[in-house]
Write a protein that binds this DNA or RNA. Structure first.
Lengths: 356, 356
DNA sequence: TTGTAAGCGTTATCAA
DNA sequence: TTGATAACGCTTACAA
């Protein structure tokens, strides 16, 4: 029952070789006789060796520069939080020689994405963090980086092409189901509910379609379809008058509408509309703790938001890349962040937290 | 704009002294001329020095043994999770020379607590982790360890006496408010709700009283008192027949009862009763993802539980102690874990997670 | 193909 | 009151 920590030195000793050789085996840098290799591997197994990752980083003393290609947050407050998460992870990892350079593109201009992506490519980073909002435009770069052996982390929107190192974000389908269950719990009696996409190009946003599917499936799978009617709508808030008109029409034609689920962080647009119209009997469920949503949660006009951990997405993206580059750990291909239900009474914890 | 990491060596150089002297200043081990001390402190400030904690642990190469005094989990599944959290933290921190010895006492026997506490004292640990279930009995030991300079972490139940190093757990009052808001959201129409304590010695459990207060305050503060009636009851499940009888009486005398809030992890007792009686119109809100609760969440008989992060409590207790002993960080006096709302559709994330 | 030795940021011991 | 120095676990030139 010896709890002694196993070091490389111990393995070397037991195998009758030097620490350098063990290290070479551990990192597959070849130049080791196959026979010796097998022996060392066996001992590693037997002694249940666990590397000291910090010492590893300390010893190797390398510098890594990584590039984060993310939306400019001035046009959409949601994107401020990933930036904060990236900042805070960078601070933690600076002592291991990691530095992050952020490239911000405009959310409404694909050409700005392309321009920044070019810059990223030119900078020859050791790794890339990408929010693939412009999915189609991102493809050629994903290919280029893949071919160049540059590891890529995608976050927020799942992308499977050119196998990125990993995806950080939520399970959109399950997120839709969760939203539906919240809506349902709040409406014990039969009624109509509305699912609303606001200001989104659904062609470029498969994750929103998955949320929608999850939402509908919840009602179907639980045999609620005969008592609850699920409507859907795509709203354009950019044309304010049309936005209002669309909602007015829906409400008039759906007198038993009791809940609205907004698939993005723009729940506040609906809340503002309801407040404006003096409507109190319709409950809203949405996403994310951005300032305008917080305001309406506190006033009771938004019942719940599901936290997508924008800060955590940035934070974990950097960490995942550091685990790969600096600590040379195996990193999981998916990191699904938890689906957290936030309401007025537990909100403060989610505002404080750095990450999850 | 130099991003260079500041090392002790840099400070030493700039101050014209050796690294040893800087180290002595940083750790207040005296034997440094006051003048030099001031100068070094100024440079530390100026250069914004951040210690490399892992290198610190690596360099100091000390061993720490800590004692965890926690309930035996065979009599109450809730207490299995803190043990798991402690185990997993121990594994992570073993490479820094930390080891944890667990002392398990019987939940229903104060003398067993005293016996184990004696053993802990005799073992002369470098730190103690304590779940102060037997609050009154714990006092003399808290005093003894405090006098001996042994840092103590209390978790799960807040204790202020003999200033422990820190408290890890939840804000019970806010937790009660959150439960009330969930109950309220699920009952748009006026009704009665029941708050139930099960099998608890309320004299030794101030945290349960705080939950109760928070629960009641939510209804009062939101002007709901005229539409919702909050009843309370203390149930003893140990006498099964009496337990059933009590519930039968309450339900008969309260025909408009629609929701029950259980202040501990024993929500499953109520759910089982309701299922047994074939009652479907009463919703249950409780605590924690123990197996019996998971079962009833999946069957829809428990709507929500608030996760008290039993695993995280153990995990963070060990880490907090390690931060203090091994890494010599300043540790916060309180670590309030987040109030997470768990339902069938997001449960899996909370089952997987190691900690929060 | 393998071993040696220096070095990463920090601490601790010992001599000055 | 100070400064050197070895050590912690690991990596990496470079020499053998």
């Amino acid at each position: 029952m010896k709890n002694k920590i196993v070091r490389i030195k111990d393995i070397a000793e037991k195998a009758g070789v030097s620490a350098g050789t063990v290290d070479r085996v551990l990192h597959n840098r070849g130049k080791v006789a196959e026979e010796v290799r097998q022996k060392i591997l066996a001992i590693v197994e037997e002694l249940n060796y666990r590397p000291n990752y910090e010492a590893r980083a300390l010893g190797s003393n390398k510098k890594f520069s990584i590039a984060a290609l993310i939306p400019d947050y001035t046009s959409d407050p949601y994107w401020y939080d990933p930036k904060l998460g990236i900042d805070s992870a960078e601070k933690e990892l600076a002592q291991y020689g990691l530095s992050v350079r952020q490239y911000l593109f405009m959310l409404d201009r694909a050409d700005s994405f392309v321009e920044k992506a070019e810059q990223v490519s030119d900078s020859m980073p050791d790794g890339v963090i990408l929010a693939p909002v412009f999915y189609k435009e991102a493809i050629p770069y994903l290919k280029r980086w893949h071919d160049a052996g540059i590891p890529v982390i995608v976050f927020n929107t799942e992308v499977k092409d050119f196998d990125p190192l990993s995806y950080i974000g939520q399970d959109s389908y399950q997120s839709g189901r969760l939203a539906a269950s919240l809506v349902h719990y709040g409406q014990p009696h039969p009624c109509s509910v509305l699912l609303a996409h606001i200001d989104e190009d659904l062609g470029n946003s498969t994750h929103l379609m998955r949320k929608e599917q999850g939402f509908k499936d919840y009602f179907d799978d639980n045999g609620l379809a005969d008592r609850y009617t699920v409507k859907r709508v795509e709203l354009k808030r950019r044309d304010y008058l049309a936005f209002i008109r669309q909602l007015d029409v829906i409400l008039q034609s759906t007198p038993d509408l009791r809940s609205i689920f907004v698939t993005t962080s723009k729940g506040y647009e609906i809340a503002a509309y309801l407040e404006d119209r003096g409507i109190e009997h319709i409950k809203v469920v949405g996403y994310d703790l951005i300032p305008r949503n917080i305001y309406f949660i506190n006033r009771g006009l938004i019942s719940f938001v599901i936290n997508q951990h924008p800060r955590g997405q940035g934070y974990w993206s950097v960490h995942q890349l550091a685990d790969h580059l600096v600590f040379r750990k195996d990193v999981p291909q998916y990191k699904y962040l938890s689906l957290d239900i936030v309401t007025k009474e537990n909100m403060s914890y989610f505002l404080e937290q750095e990450h999850r």
